[in-house]
Design a protein around this nucleic acid. Structure first.
Length: 829
DNA sequence: CTAGGGTTAG
């Protein structure tokens, strides 16, 4: 039977849980008499060294597993120290059994083995050259011990195990797993100790360490050490260094290093080339990447599938789909078959361009080639259709994935969650989270961040914080994405000082250096007109040794505009260049909007042309501001022209643009043109929103017969078009102004029925208007409605109503209300 | 070394 067990070659990490099931189900040997007897007695008061000797004998004769009863005896009878001793003894005699016993006791019986015991097992594994198992074993050990554990573990390893034959191997693997578990300081400590003991580290360990240090300047120190130690390097050593230098923005050094290999007599490797191509693509230098690609041929090297995929990816991200497709053909012509990854990259490229039909075309092509779409490409498709709002297609895809035997993974769920959140459908998102958990998927940092962000955007900050705490308790730790969502939520929903407290708590430690957090805070101060505080924070950015981004400057400029300090805003705009940044459309649009508000349309247009000469593409927001400005000067024809030229330039006007221009035509009493623009919206597939309809309703109320407004309103309701509260209040106000209390009354009731939140402001607006017209019967009705709605009176409204009652001579009502007023302490002194 | 999910500004 044991032979059976020993044939299991799977890594030990997976071994424990499954090991007992087959063992205990086997019933070929009767439990020994001594074992049964021992199990019947209470272990606590019958601790018996002789019994453990018996068990050890049992073990040595490989009879341990003959029954689970025997094992239970062992567990009950021995204490940790003795178990460790048994395993230690066994390690030399029967290593396999020692390892099995170790795991069995640890995982099934909760034994905490000593470190000594663990190292025995490690040496046994090393001696047997079971390196994968050794790696996962040590990995588990260092992860349990945590960071900072290296010194004490090293001491043990150096003192008690030097004589073991495989000690050097254990040391090396020990350093390796620390590095792999991202406990870099511990790894460095182990390496230093190894140097003292004259044990050489393998290149694998060094490579892993170089990789983990690739963002830091310690990387080169480690490289020096590798050279000094004379450890033979692998081709990955070079590529990791090239990668690291690029990541530290030392591109010239990276290229020099890459070429240095040539001087040393060997060729630069394909891997090293691939790294360079990848990094140059990443920073947007696709042309440079392409020249490295071509250079490979000159060296007589053939690009592999990675080389092609990396370059094709770079081209897709840069939006050069044609070229990406050309390289795919080229790939085939050179005898490198495009693989699933290639097609996924191409599909992503189409998705980025918003061309989902292109992505589908790629799938067709794949199928034609006999390749099956994988979960990645399905995710890309889902993501694309989520963005276009085609929920139908998304659920179809989901069904198809399931029918293809793919279980949705955490990333698919995140895509779905994200699209629900963006649509504000938070409760559906939350139930999807539940679904995810119920099928055993663990939401990760991104998943939680998406939800937290969604909740904050909906104003449910408290709920978001709950989730934030939950994620903490599941040991998923927030990063700057999560923090910024919470900070944004607090600053939007809570008070500025609440947000600031959170911000200070985050930044105080000095560990979190994130410009986005500063940007959010600065923007809030700017919005509240506290430009002084904003500038203060700007200074703090430099003290914290962070680099401001263009968003930082945009927010500051916005702040100065908001505080009507346009000259200063202009100065800040000019200062952007000195920080090596380039203004964006947002920068200019902010300033233009402020000039527009100030009525300085000429100034606004000057900024627009400045923007154009600097080749910064205006967006639809920019043009909307211009439309607003032109309308202010009643230049309606020009604004219509602008609308046309927007279409021509391929910058489609959005709902805001149309709302702005429609509003202008309403103000100019040209309802015909206003409605014509509304039709044009539909024609261009721009969905009119509640604001559009409110503008139109208001236009009809002001410019036409009220009956027409009523008819349009009913028409919209019949069409099931979503209207918001202002549509109702606009119409109610118009009816009140006309003195039609009953119509106003009916509309108000409708508004209540639809479930809109009605505030004291809505009631008092209504009561005010009715009172002014001395319609006291209606006033009484509304008063009762308001009180039954749980809204209490305020002083202002009392006075208005009292006046109305007095005006019509309704003394009873006047005195009744007066009593209430006094009782509630609302009567003025 | 390549492919799928998440922040801030008008």
């Amino acid at each position: 039977m044991l032979n059976h067990i020993h044939q299991w070659t799977r890594p030990l990490k997976r071994f424990p849980l499954k090991s007992l099931t087959p063992l205990s189900s086997l019933t070929f040997t009767k439990p020994s008499a001594s074992a049964s007897a021992a199990a019947d007695t209470n272990p606590a008061d019958t601790y018996d060294p002789a019994a453990s000797l018996e068990i050890l004998k049992c073990l040595k004769s490989k009879d341990l597993y003959s029954s689970s009863l025997c094992l239970k005896t062992l567990v009950d009878r021995l204490n940790s120290v003795q178990v460790d001793e048994v395993i230690g003894d066994l390690g030399a005699e029967d290593p396999e059994l020692a390892i099995e016993l170790f795991y069995l006791l640890k995982n099934e019986h909760g034994f905490r083995h000593s470190r000594v015991c663990s190292f025995v097992v490690a040496h046994v594994l090393a001696g047997k050259r079971r390196l994968m198992e050794l790696r996962s074993f040590l990995r588990e050990l260092v992860e349990e011990e945590g960071s900072g554990s290296a010194p004490s573990l090293c001491e043990l390893l150096g003192n008690r195990f030097r004589v073991w034959e495989s000690n050097g191997l254990v040391w090396d693997m020990f350093a390796f797993v620390y590095s792999r578990s991202e406990m870099v300081h511990d790894a460095l400590f182990v390496l230093a100790k190894m140097k003292d003991l004259n044990i050489r580290a393998s290149i694998l360990t060094y490579n892993s360490l170089l990789f983990n240090l690739r963002h830091t300047n310690i990387m080169l120190d480690v490289y020096e050490e590798i050279k000094a130690s004379g450890t033979p390097q692998s081709e990955y050593t070079t590529s990791i260094l090239v990668d690291g230098l690029c990541r530290q923005s030392l591109f010239q050094e990276a290229v020099a290093f890459h070429q240095e290999t040539e001087r040393k007599g060997s060729m630069p490797s394909v891997v090293s080339f691939n790294t360079l191509i990848s990094r140059f693509c990443e920073v947007g230098y696709v042309d440079v990447a392409k020249s490295f690609f071509c250079m490979m041929f000159k060296y007589g090297l053939l690009p592999d599938a990675y080389s092609y995929n990396i370059l094709i990816h770079g081209l897709c991200v840069a939006g050069s789909m044609e070229e990406a497709l050309e390289f795919t053909d080229d790939m085939e012509n050179h005898g490198v078959e495009p693989d699933v990854v290639t097609y996924n990259i191409l599909a992503k490229g189409f998705h980025l361009l918003g061309m989902m039909c292109g992505a589908w075309e790629i799938i067709r092509h794949m199928l034609h080639k006999g390749l099956n779409p994988d979960i990645v490409i399905y995710t890309i498709l889902m993501c694309g259709h989520c963005q276009t709002g085609d929920i139908e297609k998304v659920s179809e895809l989901r069904e198809e994935m399931l029918s293809q035997g793919f279980q949705l993974n955490d990333i698919c769920y995140s895509v779905l969650l994200s699209s629900l959140c963006k649509k504000g459908r938070i409760s559906e998102a939350l139930s999807l989270l539940h679904e995810m958990e119920s099928i055993g998927l663990k939401p990760d940092l991104v998943t939680y961040s998406i939800l937290i962000h969604g909740l904050c955007k909906q104003g449910e900050v408290q709920h978001a914080i709950q989730l934030y705490n939950k994620m903490h308790s599941k040991r998923v730790f927030p990063n700057s994405f999560t923090h910024s969502a919470i900070l944004w939520g607090l600053s939007e929903k809570g008070t500025l000082s609440e947000a600031r407290t959170f911000f200070d708590a985050l930044t105080k430690s000095g560990l979190i250096k994130d410009i986005v957090l500063y940007n959010i805070m600065i923007h809030r101060y700017a919005k509240h007109g506290k430009i002084g505080e904003a500038v203060q924070l700007y200074k703090q950015i430099f003290e914290s040794r962070i680099t401001p981004s263009i968003v930082t400057f945009n927010s500051l400029i916005y702040g100065f505009c908001k505080s009507r300090k346009l000259a200063e805003a202009r100065t800040w705009l000019d200062a952007i260049n000195t920080h090596g940044l380039v203004p964006t459309a947002v920068t200019y649009t902010t300033l233009m909007n402020a000039l527009c508000e100030e009525g300085n349309i000429r100034g606004m247009l000057e900024v627009l042309s400045e923007m154009e000469t600097r080749a910064i593409k205006p967006t639809s927001v920019t043009y909307t501001v211009v439309v607003k400005g032109l309308c202010k000067q009643h230049r309606l024809q020009e604004s219509l022209h602008l609308l046309d030229s927007m279409h021509a330039k391929g910058i489609s006007p959005d709902e805001f643009t149309y709302n702005t221009i429609i509003h202008c035509f309403c103000k100019a009493q040209d309802m015909r043109k206003a409605f014509q623009l509304h039709s044009e919206m539909l024609l261009h597939n721009v969905q009119p929103g509640p604001v559009t309809y409110n503008v139109l309703i208001n236009g009809l109320c002001v410019n036409r017969d009220l009956k027409e407004a009523d008819r349009y309103f009913s028409f919209l309701q019949d069409q099931n078009i979503r209207l918001t509260k202002p549509a109702y209040t606009t119409l109610i106000k118009a009816h009140c102004a006309k003195g039609d209390a009953s119509k106003a009354d009916a509309l108000f009731r409708q508004m209540v029925e639809k479930g809109f939140e009605i505030s004291i402001r809505d009631y008092s607006a209504m009561i005010n208007r009715l009172s002014r017209r001395k319609l006291t019967t209606n006033v009484k009705v509304f008063l009762r409605m308001m009180l039954s709605d749980g809204i209490s009176l305020d002083q202002e409204i009392c006075l208005v109503i009292l006046n109305a009652f007095r005006g019509v001579g309704d003394l009873n009502s006047e005195f009744e209300l007066l009593a209430v007023t006094i009782k509630h302490g609302l009567f003025p002194d």
